[in-house]
Structures are given as C-alpha cells and as structure tokens.
Design a protein around this nucleic acid. Structure first.
Ligand SMILES: [Mn+2]
Ligand SMILES: [Mn+2]
Ligand SMILES: [Mn+2]
Ligand SMILES: [Mn+2]
Lengths: 217, 217
DNA sequence: ATATATTTTTAGATGTGTCTAAAAATATTT
DNA sequence: AAATATTTTTAGACACATCTAAAAATATAT
C-alpha cells in the first residue's frame, strides 16, 4: 500500500528527475514539497524499503520502475481530473490544480479507467501537459517554445510550462488560452520582449512570459 | 479544519443518531467504524473541543448544529458522487460505496456545487437515499416498507435500507432494481416470506429481504 | 590541501489516530 | 441491596509524518 504522502513524494521525484538523468537531491525535493530536508530523508528511506526508489546516502534518489509507474499513475489521475473539472464542471484552468491534488489520491482503478473513457481518452490536460496511459507512457511533447520560432511564423498555443495561478491569471487577463493561434511578430532587442498577434489583437509579452509559452506548428 | 477521520465520526454519529433522539453510545460508534471503544472516546473529546459534538462522560454523544451541518455535507458529497459513478461512469449500485467513501472527503465547495449542477440536482442517490442540500436539509422519505403494503397493491421500488454489497448483489441476481414496479401478492403465514410480482416474473423473497425494500405508491 | 560553506543525515521530540490492558462507572441479575 | 456483568474511560504504547538541533559528509573557496 502506498500512502498519500508517499504518492506526493513519488510524483515530485518523478517531475524533478525528468530533466537531468542524475539522481534528485534531498533539498530539491524539500523545496518542491515545502518540507524540511530531514523529513525528506526519512521518506526516501521508506520509499527505498518498498522498492519504489533507489537511494544511496548522500547521493540522492531516483525511482525504480515500480516507483516510476506508481508516480505516472498519480500524474495520470491528476491530469484526468483536471480535464473533468474544466470540461464538465465549469472550472477554469487556474482553479483546477488544488482540487486535483486531492482527487489524484483516490484509489479505485475502475474509477480512473471509466473517467478516462467518459472524457473520451484525452491526451492532454488543460495546461497542455500529456496524460500518461495505464502503463505510464505518453507521446513526447512536440510543441516548441515561442522564443525559438522565427518572426512572422504562426502556431497554436498548446502548452504552458508554468501552470501556477499567477501566470494563468496573467494569460486570462491578456485573453490568451490554449488552442489560440499566435503569430510571432518580432523580438525587441533591448529587453528581448516579444510582440505577438492573436485573432483579437496585438500585444507585447515579457521574456519571462514567453519562456513559458509553447506552440505547435 | 475537520480531518478525514473526524468527518467519518461525524457521519457515523449522524446516522446512528437519526432514529432515536437519545445520545449515541461509544460502543455503537466503535461497531460501525470498526474501531475500539477507547479510540472513540478519544475522538469524541476532540469533536466536543471543536464544538461539533455534545459530550457528557458515560452519557454518549450527540451532534451540535455545527456538527450536524458538517456531517450532512459529507453525506451530501457521498451521495452526489455515487450518482455520478452510476450515471456517468458505468458503476453499478453495488460498486459505488467504497469509492464514495474516499471521494466524500474532497474539500472544494465549488466542486460539490458544480457536481450537483452537472448531475442536474438529483434528489436521491442510487440506493434511494435522499441527498441533503447545502444547508443539510432534505425532504423526508415518503416510501413505505413493502411489508406494510396490503396484498394486491403495487408500488415502485424507490429505496433500499440495506445498501451492502451482499444485499445489492442479491437484488441484481433477482433482477430487482430501483424504479421497478412491484406488486405484493401475498404473505406466507409459515415463515412470513413474501410473494411479489415484477414486470418480468413472480418471485418469493424472505422476510429479511422484504424488511429492506421500500416502495412509493 | 586546508579551511569554510553547504548539503544531508541522525537523534530526539511532537501531534494525530490508533491500540491494549486496567480502572472506573453504569447496568443487570439474583 | 449486593453481586456480577457490561460499558466507558484512562493510562501508556506505537506507527506515521513531521519538526528542530546537532553531527557527519560533501562541495567550494582560498
Ligand atoms: Mn495540476
Ligand atoms: Mn495540469
Ligand atoms: Mn454509500
Ligand atoms: Mn448510497
């Protein structure tokens, strides 16, 4: 049996481990989970005891296959619930995360699969993140960062890297939503801000904002 | 903040307190929750400290208005989720309880209200139990036990008192479902078993089974 | 390479919810 | 009304997940 707390650690290690292939550090986990390093050490040991993680003292952790699958299942549930909340319960994309954090821990396997079917097997959540299948696999993101697109080209907003409240609300305010067509006009050399054009209007976004927007061509 | 465990105790006290108006005993709660009497005493004190229950040593507990409302909200969530599982996720009425036991603890108020709207404001769950509104109120059950219906009369199965796995599966096996028209044929004087007739066939049910079936006329 | 800083682990404590065993209160018999 | 049985509470323990403070290991700077 995997506890709620263990699931949260698995998910965090999974996410932190995505980029580099190196083991995840104790402090990195502590920061993400907003807990103390000593608590992380305790939990890591528990995960290793359950064969969910590989752990060598002072060397960080990585997930075992078993742990990676468990983590992917939690992420699958999180993202499916987010889709449900947005598509069926009138939540906006900046309201779903907190609730999904609770719903992702509901155990029933039938529930996940039936929810998946009910939602008609979505491949991405409301923030453009891919939804893992039962085996933990998903097709890799093929969208590219808006800063890497040449001036004059157009694409569809299909993923936001930062899905925090503040950023999503900033996008709402500027009428930018997933699925919108966006044309890259030009980059201001001074501060590297970006002029873009949507169906409704032209606007300028900062480099920080641009770094989180991904388009598919 | 009310914890998951506290919510389960509130719900149990609410259910046990329904019938008599007397306070609920420690052992009654322990039996329902499948825990020890000493654990119940501990928790009761906590509920009293939080003004959710009235407690006098050795005299049992009852809920305060605050406690009753909190309990009703948990029951509201439980039953709404059961409706969702049956109506939208292909669960049968004997599969929903366990999952609803987990879902009922999800906190978001928006979630409950949006779910309610999505389900089109159902008044009863898949077992015929009434769904409390936001204020904890619901219209009283007007269905009557099948044993109190005179021979020859007909009614619609609208509530099952026992919603345990075994009983529901027994009903499935005998093709009895909520909403079915049932005619009371006669009571066997020997063992007080009941002959009934549905659209599809006649059958005999035991007194124990009959005690759990309620019809609306 | 040594000293200093940072990261990580250990040791010991705390809060929640549970348990067992024993004591206290209440209920039931005789 | 005593004696006996049952229920309820208390006392003390334990698992889990967390914390603080201190020790140990590793990384960085001089
Ligand atoms: Mn999320
Ligand atoms: Mn998401
Ligand atoms: Mn139920
Ligand atoms: Mn029910």
């Amino acid at each position: 049996m995997v506890t709620l707390s263990e699931e949260n650690y698995l998910k965090t290690i999974y996410h932190l481990g995505k980029q580099g292939t190196i083991a995840v550090s104790t402090n990195a986990i502590a920061d993400k989970i907003e807990t103390k390093a000593s608590s992380v050490t305790d939990m890591i040991k528990k995960l290793a005891d359950k064969n969910l993680a590989n752990y060598i003292k002072y060397q960080g952790v990585s997930l075992t296959n078993k742990g990676r699958l468990a983590a992917a299942l939690v992420i699958r549930k999180h993202r499916l619930w987010e889709v449900f909340l947005v598509n069926n319960l009138n939540f906006s994309w900046d309201e779903v995360h907190e609730v999904a954090e609770e719903l992702e821990h509901i155990k029933s396997l039938k529930l996940v699969d039936e929810l998946d079917a009910f939602l008609e097997f979505p491949t991405h959540d409301p923030h453009g993140d891919p939804i893992p299948d039962k085996d933990g696999n998903y097709s890799p993101i093929k969208s590219i960062n808006i800063l890497e697109i040449e001036e004059g080209k157009e694409g569809v907003l299909s993923f936001v890297k930062d899905s925090s409240d503040v950023f999503l609300k900033y996008l709402n305010k500027n009428n930018l939503a997933l699925g919108d067509s966006i044309k890259v006009l030009n980059v201001e050399p001074f501060d590297r801000s970006l002029s873009i054009e949507t169906k409704s209007k032209k606007l300028i976004i900062s480099r920080e904002a641009a770094e989180n927007l991904y388009l598919s061509l």
